[in-house]
Design a protein around this nucleic acid. Structure first.
Length: 628
DNA sequence: CTCCCTTGCGCC
DNA sequence: AAAGGGCGCAAGGGAG
């Protein structure tokens, strides 16, 4: 239970030379943004004790942090990462890392969480403090009405400060409410997750360094590829405008060129569109080579915008050569982080980062992101994460065995598909045998694609389009069947998981994180609900595992002066001081390979959960780290 | 002109 | 009858 003597709440109000700078704490150093009001408060038996003030001073902030450290208090905010960034901007990083933090908005999500199945309900639920007050404290009304965050008059400032105090009190009350509503294991999951808040705040604050030379070269390469592809297609009437528009492109391909329609989609309004997607172009390429060129042309244009232009534009906009994809903890209902490349909406949109979690694989694109001087980029990747958690969840003997050291699950699956001996395949793959390698590749695609309820047809499309493996319906059905016969526990898990979720009304991860799944199981959304029941346990546990990892390595990172850089679902990226890399890689590896699952979750996985490590100076230049 | 919808696509 | 899931972003096109 929540003890009032162990928690305080806080909040900043901010402004800047432009209104949007109020949301950009890194501009404090440029003199372009600043805090206008700061409040922290605690609840005493007799009533509120409120601290802080207008034009906040460092002394006010230090007082809060020192109090929290001395009295071992947890500091609560609402989307706290933003406010922690201001403390870091004012020079309090060291103290920030000594404190415990909690987030009211996240607690609300932990309490309330339900997935978004219904495509008609396109508006996502907003978890802003204002929305929460409206929902849970309706008597308070629209307390933000008439507040001007940027006005200078004494009246406006005084109103702002009063508003700031209200924000803090609401944050405190609502956080306490939701915390107390959570089951003990949910509380534990929420607290573990919260350990990452100051690390993520620091990452958002610092941003990522862009190698502008490499990024400019990448732009040139994209331009070159696009020009080459256009040159091939221009004689047939192609233009950049056409390839960027599926409507115009379908007209060109199907009406003018007379290519056969491969598949269609129907919009809500009942309009029929002839698809021009990647699958269509891949299949049409077998009868007309121009289809492949179109695919490559479109790719070059899209990738340039998102991954060559965006880092450069944001680094320029931010004013310090750093791009700032903005990490959102608990951004997905499964608990994974998401990243946003922009701040604001509509015409208020500011280009602060790029779509980090969509960044093209491979060095050409990823080399644009580099470690700051004096630091090395280190990646830890939870090896085979989803396969392993599925093995744990479904308890299939074969899968569990394949998770033991020295085994190779993809070769095993490949050997089943190609009727080869497992050990022979491992040996031949090791010797570089082409046939064996192709077999293993098939096994890998099967292992990765069929863990959830993918159809044989979907497997065929994935194999053909994503992996360029020729596969027909017969073969796809055979592999589909072979998978389910190899891992009999998997389809059994699907059924069991759905039955349990129907009974309980929620799904739980191994870490204690929950999502509600209620609705008409036999209705229109029944299939989606079943998929949530199946997938959430696996993906959500992956998220739990990563938050646990961050919580565990946090003290060590502080000790050696390293930082959390960013997250990519099953991968953690860290900045480590050059001189400490050799030792740190070993030490962090030890911590990660021995995470205290039992103590943290009350559950011990029956198989090892190893992490792979890569090291380098740029994201694109990471190399496997090997002990010597 | 802005806003919203649709299609398409990248990552895990 | 058939159906992996989770995201965020670019871009065109239509509505207002």
């Amino acid at each position: 239970m929540w003890k009032d003597e162990k928690f305080i709440a806080f909040d900043f109000e901010t402004s800047g030379k432009k209104p949007e700078y109020a949301l950009q704490p890194w501009r404090l150093a440029q003199g372009k943004s600043w805090a206008t009001s700061f409040v922290w408060a605690r609840k005493k038996p007799k009533g509120w004790e409120v601290h802080g003030g207008l034009q906040p001073t460092n002394a006010m902030m230090r007082e809060m942090l020192q109090t929290a450290i001395d009295e071992d208090l947890t500091i609560v905010g609402w989307f706290t990462i933003f406010d922690i960034q201001w403390l870091i901007a004012y020079g309090f990083y060291d103290m920030v890392m000594k404190c415990k933090w909690l987030d009211g908005g996240h607690l609300w999500r932990h309490y309330f969480l339900e997935p978004e199945y219904d495509l008609d309900r396109s508006k996502k639920k907003s978890y802003r403090l204002k929305d929460c007050v409206r929902e849970y404290l309706p008597d308070e009304g629209d307390y933000e009405e008439g507040i001007d965050f940027h006005a200078d008059s004494p009246e406006a400032r005084s109103a702002l400060h009063k508003y700031n105090i209200k924000d803090v009190k609401f944050t405190y009350r609502l956080a306490r409410h939701f915390y107390n509503q959570l089951e003990p294991n949910q509380q534990r999951a929420a607290l573990l997750e919260a350990a990452c808040l100051p690390m993520v705040a620091k990452a958002n604050f610092d941003g990522m360094l862009v190698d502008t030379l490499v990024a400019h070269e990448l732009q040139a390469v994209c331009d070159q590829v696009a020009a080459m592809k256009l040159e091939e297609l221009a004689p047939y009437g192609m233009t950049e405008k056409i390839v960027r528009s599926h409507k115009q492109l379908s007209k060109l391909m199907f009406d003018d060129w007379g290519l056969p329609v491969y598949k269609t989609t129907t919009t809500k309004k009942g309009e029929v569109n002839r698809s021009t997607d990647k699958e269509t172009l891949h299949e049409l390429a077998f009868i007309d080579k121009r289809a492949k060129t179109i695919k490559e042309y479109r790719e070059a244009l899209n990738n340039k915008t998102k991954f060559a232009n965006a880092p450069l534009i944001s680094a320029e906009y931010n004013g310090d050569g750093k791009t700032r994809p903005s990490a959102i903890v608990f951004g997905t209902y499964s608990g994974r982080m998401t990243y946003s490349s922009k701040q604001g909406e509509g015409k208020e949109e500011r280009p602060i980062g790029f779509a980090l979690h969509q960044m093209v694989r491979g060095p050409a694109y990823r080399s644009t992101i580099i470690a700051p001087p004096g630091y090395t980029l280190v990646e830890f990747d939870a090896a085979g994460q989803e396969f392993k958690w599925m093995a744990v969840a479904c308890k299939d003997d074969t899968m569990l065995e394949l998770c033991q050291p020295g085994e190779d699950a993809h070769s095993y699956m490949g050997s089943r598909i190609t009727h080869m001996d497992y050990q022979d395949m491992i040996r031949l793959v090791h010797e570089g045998d082409k046939v064996a390698k192709a077999g293993r590749q098939l096994g890998k695609v099967a292992n990765l694609s069929l863990q959830y309820r993918t159809s044989a047809n979907k497997l065929r499309i994935t194999a053909r389009v994503q992996h360029n493996i020729p596969m027909d319906e017969v073969q796809a059905r055979f592999i589909h069947r072979t998978y389910q016969q190899t891992y009999r526990g998997v389809p059994q898990y699907w059924e069991k998981q759905i039955a349990m979720t129907r009974r309980l009304g929620y799904v739980e991860t191994f870490g204690g994180r929950r999502v509600q799944v209620v609705g008409e199981w036999d209705g229109r959304l029944g299939w989606s609900m079943g998929s949530t029941a199946i997938n959430y346990k696996i993906q959500g546990t992956g998220a739990d595992q990563k938050y646990l990892a961050l919580a565990v390595i946090r003290p060590y990172l502080v000790q050696i002066g390293g930082y959390f850089g960013w997250d990519l679902h099953d991968g953690l990226y860290l900045y480590i001081p050059d001189a400490k890399v050799q030792k740190a890689v070993v030490e962090i590896g030890k911590l990660l390979n021995n995470l205290p699952y039992a103590r943290a979750w009350g559950f011990t996985p029956p198989i090892p959960m190893p992490w792979d490590c890569k090291v380098g100076k740029s994201w694109g230049g990471l190399k496997e780290w090997k002990e010597h």
